[in-house]
Simulated assay, not measured.
Amino acid sequence: MKRTIIPYKPYLKELARQLRQNSTLSETLLWNELKGKKLLGLDFDRQKPLSNYIVDFYCKELMLAIEVDGDSHDYKYEEDCARQAELEKLGVRFLKFDDAAVKRDISNVLREIEGWVLKHQ
Protein backbone atom coordinates (compact mmCIF):
# COMPACT_ATOMS: atom_id res chain seq x y z
CA MET A 1 0.00 0.00 0.00
CA LYS A 2 1.41 3.37 -1.01
CA ARG A 3 1.58 5.85 1.81
CA THR A 4 0.03 9.24 1.33
CA ILE A 5 2.41 12.09 1.99
CA ILE A 6 0.67 15.09 3.45
CA PRO A 7 2.57 18.30 2.68
CA TYR A 8 2.82 20.98 5.36
CA LYS A 9 3.65 24.65 5.65
CA PRO A 10 7.45 25.04 6.05
CA TYR A 11 7.16 27.44 9.02
CA LEU A 12 5.59 24.61 11.05
CA LYS A 13 8.88 22.70 11.13
CA GLU A 14 10.46 25.09 13.64
CA LEU A 15 7.27 25.30 15.72
CA ALA A 16 7.13 21.48 15.87
CA ARG A 17 10.76 21.43 17.08
CA GLN A 18 9.87 23.92 19.84
CA LEU A 19 6.86 21.82 20.86
CA ARG A 20 9.06 18.72 21.08
CA GLN A 21 11.46 20.59 23.35
CA ASN A 22 8.60 21.75 25.59
CA SER A 23 6.45 18.62 25.82
CA THR A 24 3.90 18.16 28.56
CA LEU A 25 4.41 15.36 31.06
CA SER A 26 1.65 13.27 29.47
CA GLU A 27 3.15 13.74 25.98
CA THR A 28 6.56 12.65 27.30
CA LEU A 29 5.06 9.61 29.04
CA LEU A 30 3.22 8.51 25.90
CA TRP A 31 6.22 9.21 23.66
CA ASN A 32 8.36 6.94 25.83
CA GLU A 33 5.93 4.11 24.99
CA LEU A 34 5.60 4.89 21.26
CA LYS A 35 9.17 5.74 20.22
CA GLY A 36 11.55 3.18 18.79
CA LYS A 37 8.68 1.14 17.32
CA LYS A 38 7.79 -0.15 20.81
CA LEU A 39 4.08 -0.34 20.04
CA LEU A 40 3.41 -3.25 17.66
CA GLY A 41 6.51 -2.32 15.63
CA LEU A 42 4.88 0.89 14.38
CA ASP A 43 6.92 4.00 13.59
CA PHE A 44 5.49 7.13 15.24
CA ASP A 45 6.62 10.74 14.85
CA ARG A 46 6.20 13.30 17.62
CA GLN A 47 4.81 16.81 16.99
CA LYS A 48 4.31 16.05 13.29
CA PRO A 49 3.38 18.88 10.87
CA LEU A 50 0.50 17.91 8.56
CA SER A 51 -1.06 20.46 6.21
CA ASN A 52 -1.55 23.64 8.30
CA TYR A 53 -1.40 21.87 11.65
CA ILE A 54 0.78 19.90 14.05
CA VAL A 55 -0.45 16.67 15.66
CA ASP A 56 1.04 15.26 18.88
CA PHE A 57 1.90 11.82 17.46
CA TYR A 58 1.56 10.42 13.95
CA CYS A 59 1.98 7.01 12.34
CA LYS A 60 2.39 7.40 8.55
CA GLU A 61 1.76 3.72 7.90
CA LEU A 62 -1.75 3.92 9.41
CA MET A 63 -2.33 7.64 8.80
CA LEU A 64 -3.16 7.75 12.50
CA ALA A 65 -2.84 10.87 14.64
CA ILE A 66 -2.88 10.52 18.40
CA GLU A 67 -3.70 13.61 20.41
CA VAL A 68 -3.28 14.21 24.12
CA ASP A 69 -5.72 16.90 25.19
CA GLY A 70 -4.94 18.89 28.30
CA ASP A 71 -6.16 22.18 29.72
CA SER A 72 -4.97 24.19 26.70
CA HIS A 73 -7.60 22.42 24.57
CA ASP A 74 -10.50 23.42 26.83
CA TYR A 75 -10.74 26.81 25.16
CA LYS A 76 -10.07 25.63 21.61
CA TYR A 77 -12.85 23.11 21.08
CA GLU A 78 -14.19 24.59 17.82
CA GLU A 79 -10.65 25.12 16.51
CA ASP A 80 -9.74 21.50 17.35
CA CYS A 81 -12.87 20.19 15.61
CA ALA A 82 -12.18 22.21 12.44
CA ARG A 83 -8.53 21.07 12.43
CA GLN A 84 -9.54 17.42 12.87
CA ALA A 85 -12.19 17.66 10.13
CA GLU A 86 -9.68 19.18 7.69
CA LEU A 87 -7.08 16.48 8.39
CA GLU A 88 -9.71 13.73 8.17
CA LYS A 89 -10.52 14.95 4.63
CA LEU A 90 -6.89 14.13 3.83
CA GLY A 91 -7.34 10.59 5.21
CA VAL A 92 -5.93 11.08 8.72
CA ARG A 93 -7.68 9.14 11.48
CA PHE A 94 -7.65 10.29 15.10
CA LEU A 95 -7.41 8.84 18.57
CA LYS A 96 -7.71 11.33 21.43
CA PHE A 97 -6.81 10.88 25.05
CA ASP A 98 -7.24 13.11 28.05
CA ASP A 99 -4.04 14.38 29.65
CA ALA A 100 -5.08 12.98 33.04
CA ALA A 101 -5.82 9.52 31.58
CA VAL A 102 -2.30 9.28 30.17
CA LYS A 103 -0.77 10.29 33.51
CA ARG A 104 -2.97 8.04 35.67
CA ASP A 105 -3.49 4.96 33.50
CA ILE A 106 -1.07 4.81 30.58
CA SER A 107 -1.38 1.01 30.34
CA ASN A 108 -5.07 1.38 29.51
CA VAL A 109 -4.29 4.12 26.95
CA LEU A 110 -1.77 1.80 25.29
CA ARG A 111 -4.29 -1.07 25.26
CA GLU A 112 -6.79 1.22 23.57
CA ILE A 113 -4.26 2.25 20.91
CA GLU A 114 -3.27 -1.39 20.30
CA GLY A 115 -6.92 -2.39 20.02
CA TRP A 116 -7.57 0.35 17.47
CA VAL A 117 -4.50 -0.63 15.44
CA LEU A 118 -5.40 -4.32 15.39
CA LYS A 119 -8.94 -3.48 14.28
CA HIS A 120 -7.91 -1.01 11.55
CA GLN A 121 -4.69 -2.45 10.06
Results as ranks from 00 to 15, higher is better:
residue 57 F to G: 00
residue 49 P to V: 09
residue 48 K to L: 04
residue 17 R to A: 10
residue 15 L to M: 15
residue 47 Q to N: 02
residue 23 S to A: 11
residue 36 G to P: 11
residue 24 T to M: 05
residue 8 Y to R: 05
residue 76 K to G: 09
residue 53 Y to T: 08
residue 27 E to M: 01
residue 84 Q to K: 12
residue 56 D to E: 02
residue 49 P to W: 02
residue 20 R to H: 12
residue 13 K to R: 13
residue 8 Y to G: 04
residue 21 Q to H: 12
residue 25 L to Q: 14
residue 16 A to N: 01
residue 84 Q to V: 15
residue 40 L to D: 02
residue 55 V to F: 02
residue 40 L to I: 10
residue 7 P to R: 09
residue 65 A to H: 08
residue 21 Q to M: 07
residue 32 N to S: 14
residue 78 E to S: 14
residue 23 S to Y: 07
residue 65 A to C: 04
residue 31 W to F: 01
residue 35 K to L: 02
residue 34 L to W: 00
residue 30 L to T: 02
residue 67 E to F: 07
residue 62 L to V: 05
residue 82 A to P: 14
residue 27 E to D: 02
residue 60 K to I: 13
residue 78 E to D: 10
residue 49 P to E: 01
residue 80 D to N: 07
residue 59 C to H: 05
residue 25 L to V: 13
residue 62 L to I: 12
residue 11 Y to V: 14
residue 29 L to P: 13
residue 62 L to D: 08
residue 17 R to L: 04
residue 26 S to W: 00
residue 53 Y to I: 05
residue 27 E to V: 00
residue 21 Q to R: 10
residue 81 C to R: 14
residue 20 R to S: 01
residue 45 D to K: 09
residue 39 L to M: 04
residue 42 L to K: 08
residue 9 K to W: 10
residue 21 Q to V: 06
residue 56 D to W: 06
residue 36 G to E: 06
residue 33 E to R: 12
residue 29 L to W: 07
residue 8 Y to H: 08
residue 81 C to Y: 13
residue 33 E to V: 12
residue 40 L to E: 15
residue 28 T to P: 13
residue 68 V to R: 00
residue 27 E to C: 08
residue 55 V to L: 03
residue 25 L to T: 09
residue 84 Q to M: 11
residue 12 L to T: 13
residue 37 K to H: 11
residue 13 K to G: 14
residue 62 L to S: 08
residue 25 L to P: 10
